[in-house]
Design a protein around this nucleic acid. Structure first.
Length: 577
RNA sequence: GCGCCCGUAGCUCAGUGGAUAGAGCGCUUGCCUCCGGAGCAAGAGGUCGCAGGUUCGAAUCCUGCCGGGCGCGCCA
């Protein structure tokens, strides 16, 4: 960004480094339409909810507003295992008041759930608190274990919508920055979550290998090859000197040709960095290919807009009347000199993507939010529904060291690359720390904490719980037995853990719908904590056989779910640390 | 000036209509004959930026302010 200010993030993506965020990538807005989740309701909690729904009907109320009904473990343990606000929502439709209706609901559930329900009570304005029996816990664990690794995932993989997630797309004029690591972690994790939810997902990187910045790269390389300073607006990083040395005849070469080779090399490095980071793109889309031929896709896109009557000529330039679609200004498509703008190419690119998918998700940097309105306007002008393009805006990331927004950079003009960061804290910590906060919050990444290989570091804490589960199962030495039919009374820690496991499908759906991988981090952390509490309270090795076997099954289910969660984050789940 | 995001514990942040607002870090105090102490437990710490409004119920929704970040090119 040629015009961004200096300051805190300047060493991440600073004008003086010449590192540019991907162009054109703006801000955020949340279309009402979301990618549908392909999976059907399933799992123990859904069974309960189905029973609740039946009870609502049996008690004479409408289920029209049932999607507003919650059924979840209350914060306060004395309120039972699950609490529902159903009566508060539907009582009116039965001509009843909430407390009275909750009584009816309780009685109905008592009948339908039998031994699974130990007791119930009506509380407050009309909450119904349920206390479940060990029978429910046992059968729930059974169900979770039967589903195995796919618990919470779509019944039919790939039956959902086809989604293209475009992310990173950083200009190939320099190495990937640490900030790019946030985009990469987010986009990839979101893609994994959507895949797990049954969608067909393609990860795509838009390579801005055309336009003025590529030319500037060529000029900069040539200048360096001749031992000169780079031109104003050039790229001054040391990597340009490396490129100058690497590219044969760069001192006397044609700027475009030199630039092309430079871009090729840099794209290769970006690819390698991302691969190291665990991110694989399905498609690297070259902007230059949009400009090929006289009859290019950019020209076609402009023609299409013209046919739609959405363009006009002024001052020798061709404009899109984007104000017709909510933008605050009209935008130039073709400059008076005849060259298409970046925007025009981006429209062609999005037209191409729209033809290839049901839903588009673009992940953009926060400094591009001003670009959102025109992009949506363009989609609409093309005759498409703007909701099909979803723009997710990533806020910035700062690296913090020693309690300060740190000078990790050695000197002015340097910046922290993603590779530098990975050298410092490793892939697992980097991905976790990049993901654990919501995309619309600016984050400070604490390098000291991220480096820590102890329980103070959440990512190691979660991995530790996983390794511990593996270890104790191994130590018991009887494999993973079936859940015994005769059970001793369950410990509160066992029940708490099973409730958590059972809540996974719902949590996952939430993360998918809200495009919120950070929820998976939060879930994994709580799950690890609750597993650890169970491990502390319920001895496995040396316990009576039926208790031991039940607990092994539970530990194994927890281990599986921790591993699944970490996989969705792109973090490893080793059996030993 | 206009637009987008953010404002919750000392710090970094979860929590997009439910009951006494949570986690991690930091701080205080305990716990190793005990399946991994790379651990566990307890505690202190908050006018959810401010003011109105909607609701049986608001950190959450609406309006207006204040503060911070970012953006408003025939750049990408």
């Amino acid at each position: 960004m040629s015009n961004s200010s200096g300051g805190i993030r300047s060493w991440l993506a600073s004008p003086t480094t010449g590192l540019e965020e991907d162009p054109a990538h703006g801000e955020h807005l949340r279309p009402a339409t979301r990618v549908a989740c392909a999976f059907d309701m399933q799992g123990p909690v859904d069974n309960l909810k189905a029973a609740l729904r039946d009870a609502v009907e049996a008690a004479g109320a409408s289920t029209d507003a049932f999607d507003k009904v919650s059924l979840e473990p209350p914060k306060e343990a004395s309120f039972g295992d699950f609490a529902t606000n159903a009566a508060l929502i539907v009582a009116k439709s039965a001509g009843s008041n909430p407390r009275e209706f909750a009584e009816r609901l309780g009685a109905q559930l008592e009948q339908s759930l039998g031994a699974q329900l130990t007791s119930w009570e009506v509380a407050g304005p009309g909450f119904l608190n349920l206390t479940l029996g060990d029978a429910w816990y046992s059968s729930s664990l059974e169900e979770i274990r039967a589903a195995g690794e796919s618990f919470g995932s779509a019944d039919q993989q790939g039956e959902g919508e086809k989604v293209i997630v475009e992310f990173v797309s950083a200009n190939p004029t320099g190495p990937l920055t640490a900030a790019g690591g946030r985009h990469a972690a987010y986009g990839d994790s979101l893609a994994r979550i959507l895949e797990f939810s049954g969608n067909r997902v393609e990860r795509e990187y838009y390579v801005n290998d055309a336009g003025a910045q590529v030319n500037r790269l060529g000029q900069s390389i040539i200048a360096r090859a001749n031992g000169e300073e780079v031109p104003e607006d050039g790229y001054s990083g040391d990597y340009v000197i490396e490129l100058a040395n690497e590219i044969p005849d760069s001192a006397s070469g044609d700027p475009d040709a030199v630039a092309r080779v430079g871009v090729e090399i840099l794209v290769g490095r970006i690819k390698a960095t991302l691969e190291r980071y665990g991110v694989q793109f399905d498609k690297w889309f070259s902007e230059a290919t949009l400009h090929d031929d006289a009859d290019s896709r950019v020209t076609k896109a402009c023609d299409a807009l013209q046919r739609g009557g959405h363009v006009f000529t002024e001052d020798g330039a061709l404009w899109l009347r984007s104000t017709d679609f909510g933008d605050d200004k009209d935008r130039v498509l073709v400059r008076s000199g005849g060259q298409p703008t970046y925007f025009a190419a981006d429209i062609a690119y999005h037209a191409d993507k729209l033809a290839r998918a049901d839903q588009l998700i673009d992940v953009w940097g926060a400094d591009h939010h001003g670009y959102m309105a025109r992009m949506h306007a363009a989609v609409e002008a093309l005759g498409d529904e703007p909701e099909r393009l979803e723009l997710v805006i990533m806020q910035f990331v700062n690296l913090v060291e020693g309690g300060d927004r740190a000078q990790m950079s050695k000197r002015r003009g340097d910046f922290v690359t993603l590779d530098d960061l990975l050298d410092e804290i490793g892939v697992d910590a980097a991905r976790w720390f990049m993901l654990q906060r919501s995309h619309d919050t600016m984050v400070d990444l604490d390098l000291d904490l991220a480096r820590e290989r102890s329980a103070e570091n959440p990512v190691y804490y979660v991995q530790y719980a996983h390794a511990r589960a593996a270890s104790v199962i191994d130590k018991a030495g009887v494999g993973v037995p079936a859940i015994p039919s005769e059970l001793a009374e369950l410990h509160d820690s066992e029940k708490t853990l099973i409730r958590r496991l059972a809540s996974w499908p719902e949590e996952l759906a939430e993360a998918a719908e809200r495009r919120a991988p950070h929820r998976i981090c939060a879930f994994a952390l709580v799950l690890a904590q609750e597993f650890t509490a169970f491990y502390r309270d319920c001895r496995i090795v040396g316990a009576p056989d039926n208790e031991r076997d039940f607990r092994i099954a539970l530990a194994d289910a927890a281990k599986t779910q921790i591993a699944t969660a970490l996989t969705l984050l792109g973090v490893s789940a080793p059996n030993e640390l």
